[in-house]
């Protein structure tokens, strides 16, 4: 145990530099609609991990941690979950009026090590770190906290399903994410562990990348209150991602990699 702790520490110092470049793939959910009317409304949601947005070309999204919160805060069961080669999907029935939040929140420890000359990827909880073989070399671990959300509103938008948990990166709806219109100014606020996330890098990418030459990323940085402002240049589905690093909470001399992502729909006026 002692030996491993030392080697973890050493490896972590070496491993930090490369940590940021590990994930080129983007994970996302894509709802069939974000604004709905009527009495028995349904949405169907696709999930995937891919390079380009929003195309199914790499992996289906793992839905094990999917959680759906109704406007009143009730848990809603996802229906018809399925997973294919490149895409997973599920349906949800919206019985209440207001805003539903679909969330996948992954927390844990991830990294890699070498054993008998082979490289192994590892994911688990803090308790499970002790289970990594003692002979592992080049052990690199970091804490991860990844939150992915999608918002869907039937009737008028509500904010009750946004109550912050104080853990990781969270979006606060200064502008409601189901009330976004081309040409209008939207203000989003981000918290990191319950406090304003200052200097957070926020990325926005519009759908339909296949049909244009440039990705046309919008890059923003939060102010001291954790706010960013964006004027939507065009209607469309946008993928939002914010990423940051912070000192680890459980591991020694390790980093904690946090991300927040959401799929947003911007309508034309």
């Amino acid at each position: 145990m002692n030996v491993k702790t030392i080697s973890t520490t050493l490896a972590l110092v070496i491993g930090l530099a490369s940590a940021a470049s590990v994930h080129a793939h983007r994970a996302w959910m894509l709802p069939s609609a974000t604004v709905l009317s009527g009495e028995n409304a349904w949405v169907t949601v696709d999930g995937a991990v891919s390079n380009s947005l929003f195309y199914f070309e790499h992996h289906p999204l793992n839905l094990d941690k999917l959680e759906i919160r109704s406007p009143s805060g009730a848990r809603v069961e996802a229906q018809n979950k399925a997973s294919g080669k490149y895409r997973s999907m599920f349906d949800a029935e919206l019985t209440e009026d207001g805003t539903y939040t679909f969330e996948i929140h992954n927390q844990g420890i991830s990294g890699s090590y070498e054993l008998d000359g082979k490289r192994h990827r590892w994911m688990g909880s803090a308790d499970e770190v002790a289970g990594i073989p003692a002979a592992a070399e080049s052990l690199r671990l970091s804490e991860i906290d990844r939150r992915m959300q999608v918002f869907v509103t039937k009737g008028a938008p509500t904010v009750d399903s946004f109550s912050p948990t104080g853990e990781g990166l969270e979006l606060l709806p200064d502008t409601h994410p189901n009330d976004l219109f081309s040409g209008e100014t939207t203000v989003f606020r981000f918290n990191l562990d319950g406090k304003p996330a200052e200097g957070l890098a926020v990325l926005l990418i519009r759908d339909g990348i296949r049909y244009r030459d440039q990705v046309e990323e919008i890059r923003l940085t939060t102010d001291a209150e954790g706010r960013v402002e964006v004027v939507w240049p065009e209607p469309g589905i946008y993928w939002l991602e914010a990423e940051t690093e912070a000192p680890a909470k459980q591991l020694k001399n390790a980093s904690r990699r946090l991300s927040y992502s959401a799929t947003l729909e911007v309508l034309p006026l």
Binding site: V35, L36, S37, G38, E39, A41, L267, P268
Partner: peptide, 11 residues
């Protein structure tokens, strides 16, 4: 009230 489903198209 199935016709309500499309009211949101009067966006």
């Amino acid at each position: 009230n199935e016709g309500n489903k499309w009211l949101k198209d009067l966006r």
